[in-house]
Amino acid sequence: RRKSKRKPPPKKKMTGTLETQFTCPFCNHEKSCDVKMDRARNTGVISCTVCLEEFQTPITYLSEPVDVYSDWIDACE
C-alpha cells in the first residue's frame, strides 16, 4: 500500500502594511513626515510637519511612499 502524500500548506502572504509616516532626517521627530503621491504629475512630495523641511522626487506608477522617503534619505547623504 502506498502512503498518500500531503500537499504542503499554502504560504501566507505578507499582510503587513508599509509605513506612511516617517522620521525626519533633519529634526529627528518620529512620524512627523507625510508623503503626498501626485500620480497625475508623477511626483512624490514628502514634508515634515515640525521643521517644515520638504522634498520632491519623480515617481512611477509602482512607487510607494517608502520609496519617496528613501529617495529623500539618499539625497541627504
Score class of each variant (00 low, 15 high):
63 S>K: 14
62 L>A: 11
44 G>I: 00
16 G>R: 10
17 T>G: 06
72 W>P: 06
67 D>G: 05
14 M>V: 09
21 Q>P: 03
75 A>R: 15
70 S>M: 07
33 C>R: 02
36 K>N: 04
73 I>M: 12
7 K>I: 08
30 E>M: 01
67 D>V: 02
66 V>S: 13
38 D>M: 03
56 Q>G: 09
22 F>G: 05
36 K>F: 09
5 K>T: 15
71 D>Q: 07
20 T>N: 09
11 K>V: 08
42 N>L: 12
16 G>K: 06
41 R>Q: 11
75 A>P: 01
4 S>D: 06
14 M>D: 15
23 T>G: 11
49 T>V: 07
65 P>T: 09
45 V>N: 09
31 K>D: 08
61 Y>T: 14
46 I>N: 02
23 T>N: 15
72 W>V: 02
57 T>F: 00
46 I>W: 01
7 K>E: 14
30 E>I: 15
55 F>Y: 13
10 P>F: 04
70 S>F: 05
15 T>S: 12
47 S>A: 13
24 C>A: 02
12 K>G: 10
53 E>Y: 02
26 F>W: 05
50 V>S: 12
6 R>W: 03
30 E>Q: 15
12 K>M: 10
36 K>V: 11
27 C>D: 02
65 P>F: 04
69 Y>E: 03
56 Q>T: 12
21 Q>M: 13
55 F>S: 03
69 Y>M: 11
66 V>K: 11
19 E>K: 07
24 C>G: 01
33 C>N: 01
67 D>R: 03
17 T>I: 15
67 D>S: 11
50 V>N: 13
9 P>R: 09
49 T>Q: 11
11 K>L: 06
57 T>Q: 05
50 V>H: 15
29 H>C: 09
20 T>R: 10
4 S>R: 02
39 R>H: 15
46 I>C: 06
33 C>E: 02
56 Q>K: 08
65 P>M: 10
72 W>A: 05
73 I>L: 12
67 D>K: 04
57 T>A: 15
24 C>P: 01
51 C>N: 00
72 W>K: 06
18 L>D: 08
13 K>C: 10
65 P>I: 03
16 G>E: 06
26 F>C: 12
18 L>V: 10
14 M>S: 10
6 R>M: 13
75 A>S: 09
49 T>P: 08
21 Q>S: 06
11 K>S: 07
29 H>E: 12
58 P>I: 05
56 Q>A: 09
67 D>F: 02
47 S>F: 09
8 P>H: 15
25 P>C: 12
26 F>I: 10
42 N>E: 15
44 G>E: 01
36 K>C: 01
43 T>P: 00
10 P>R: 04
15 T>L: 10
44 G>D: 02
38 D>W: 03
25 P>R: 11
51 C>H: 00
17 T>N: 04
4 S>G: 08
5 K>D: 05
68 V>H: 00
57 T>E: 09
6 R>V: 12
64 E>W: 04
50 V>G: 08
34 D>V: 11
35 V>T: 04
40 A>T: 02
69 Y>Q: 00
60 T>P: 03
36 K>Y: 03
21 Q>K: 10
14 M>A: 14
38 D>S: 03
76 C>M: 15
23 T>P: 11
9 P>W: 07
43 T>Q: 10
51 C>W: 00
16 G>S: 13
15 T>F: 02
44 G>C: 00
61 Y>V: 12
66 V>I: 04
41 R>G: 12
56 Q>R: 14
63 S>Y: 07
41 R>V: 13
43 T>S: 09
25 P>W: 06
19 E>T: 05
64 E>I: 10
63 S>G: 03
45 V>W: 09
21 Q>R: 12
70 S>H: 11
40 A>G: 14
56 Q>E: 14
27 C>Q: 00
39 R>P: 09
64 E>R: 11
3 K>F: 05
30 E>Y: 05
73 I>G: 04
26 F>Q: 07
44 G>R: 01
52 L>H: 07
5 K>M: 14
30 E>C: 00
28 N>R: 09
7 K>G: 08
50 V>I: 06
70 S>K: 15
23 T>F: 07
38 D>A: 03
27 C>G: 03
56 Q>D: 07
40 A>V: 10
13 K>M: 11
23 T>D: 06
7 K>M: 09
2 R>Q: 13
68 V>E: 00
24 C>E: 00
9 P>Y: 14
27 C>A: 01
48 C>V: 00
25 P>L: 06
5 K>P: 07
70 S>L: 11
63 S>V: 05
63 S>I: 02
27 C>L: 00
75 A>E: 12
56 Q>S: 06
